[in-house]
């Protein structure tokens, strides 16, 4: 059985989880088995609607100790659940929660783990999973040798597909949950922002924008596109933008459908964080900027002139669509 970890936040099943569900269902078909979900804690979202992703059943463990996240508690609970339901493959999203728990589950079950998978495994001879390595500069095909296998799926690498509306059954699972040691004292959400790692479109600015006071034209474009905003390392280091917006080798790695880089020269460390984007647009007034070599579309021009025009052109396109 393929068991997919159903991650949720603020009573909503995350988009990256839906990708993991689609992946898990496809993998189950490939292996000739069934896919089930596993949710920890109470979630006020429609779990049964996961049936539309062809998930037949979701196991749910409800315990007061699961009301807030504690990796140690979650790891033990997931490992116990996987053993109880007889899961042979576990699928997580390689998002913040997945990164916090999948390694621990792997160690407890002695189940081989591949993190950051980007496609379905090859299972005709063995079990080989393709993942990104060297911060997106290459791929590795990793063979898992254990009976139980664990995969965490890189966000935005597997598109969600739904079939006809169907209802997944919800099966309560009785697993003793140990009390945790971690207390959450504050949660600071950057409200209203689109999560960078989950975004379909990312608009990113560099030193070419000259100062934090000039970010308005970038934010206008992002708003028009429904995009998340990001920045290069020098911009984060200079505190023009918050640290969590820094994409690159030592920042966040993103893989959106569309990445628009404005006034970013394209240092190799920056490219490492964005080179898995499907389409890259580069706007830079320097025609020699190395980023153009990694781009699909480019405009050699002044961002201060190009950006407002681009925002208007997208508005016009949307109005006529």
């Amino acid at each position: 059985m393929v068991l997919v970890y159903i991650d949720h936040q603020d009573n909503q099943i995350k988009k990256s989880t839906l990708e993991a569900v689609t992946y898990g269902v496809a993998l189950a078909k490939q292996l000739g088995t069934e896919a089930h979900g596993l949710v920890l804690g109470n979630v006020n979202d429609d779990l049964a609607a996961l049936g539309a992703y062809e998930l037949k059943n979701v196991y749910q463990i409800n315990d007061v100790a699961l009301a807030h996240f504690d990796a140690q508690v979650f790891v033990k609970t997931i490992a116990a659940a996987a053993t109880k339901v007889g899961a042979t493959t576990l699928v997580f999203s390689h998002n913040q929660t997945g990164k916090a728990v999948c390694a621990g589950v792997s160690a407890l079950l002695k189940a081989g783990l591949v993190t950051g998978a980007i496609e379905l495994p090859k299972t005709d001879a063995g079990f080989v999973v393709k993942k990104t390595v060297f911060s997106g500069k290459a791929f590795a095909n990793v063979s898992i040798q254990t009976a139980i296998k664990i995969i965490s799926l890189s966000p935005n690498s597997f598109h969600t597909t739904t079939g006809a509306a169907a209802t997944a059954s919800i099966t309560p699972l009785d697993i003793p949950v140990s009390a945790g040691h971690v207390k959450v004292s504050a949660v600071n959400k950057t409200s209203g922002e689109i999560s960078l790692t989950e975004a379909d479109i990312v608009v990113s600015g560099g030193r070419g924008l000259k100062g934090p006071e000039n970010w308005g034209i970038l934010l206008d474009l992002a708003k028009e596109l429904g995009a998340a905003t990001a920045c290069s390392r020098p911009v984060g280091d200079a505190h023009w933008r918050p640290h969590h917006e820094h994409v690159g080798q030592t920042g966040v790695q993103v893989a959106p459908n569309l990445y628009i880089a404005i006034g970013i020269s394209g240092a190799i460390q920056h490219l490492a964080g964005v080179n898995r984007s499907k389409t890259i647009v580069v706007i830079n007034k320097d025609p020699e900027a190395p980023f153009f070599k990694a781009a699909d579309y480019g405009i050699v021009g002044d961002a201060f002139e190009v950006l407002p025009k681009l925002t208007d052109a997208i508005k016009k396109m949307k109005a006529s669509a």
Binding site: S106, K110, A111, G112, L113, V114, V128, K130, V133, K137, A138, F139, A140, N141, V142, S143, I144, Q145, T146, N275, V281, V282, F292, K293, A294, A295, D296, Y297, G298, I299, V300, G301, D302, E305, V306, K309, L310, D312, A313, I314, K316, M317
Partner: peptide, 28 residues
């Protein structure tokens, strides 16, 4: 528990299509 079978490099980009800054509608 695992071993790397092989590595691959990503396929090279086809090359950038440049659009004139006076023709933004074409980029869109």
């Amino acid at each position: 528990l695992t071993s790397i079978e092989s590595f691959e490099l990503p396929a090279p980009k086809a090359g950038v299509k440049l659009v004139s800054p006076d023709n933004i509608d074409e980029l869109v």
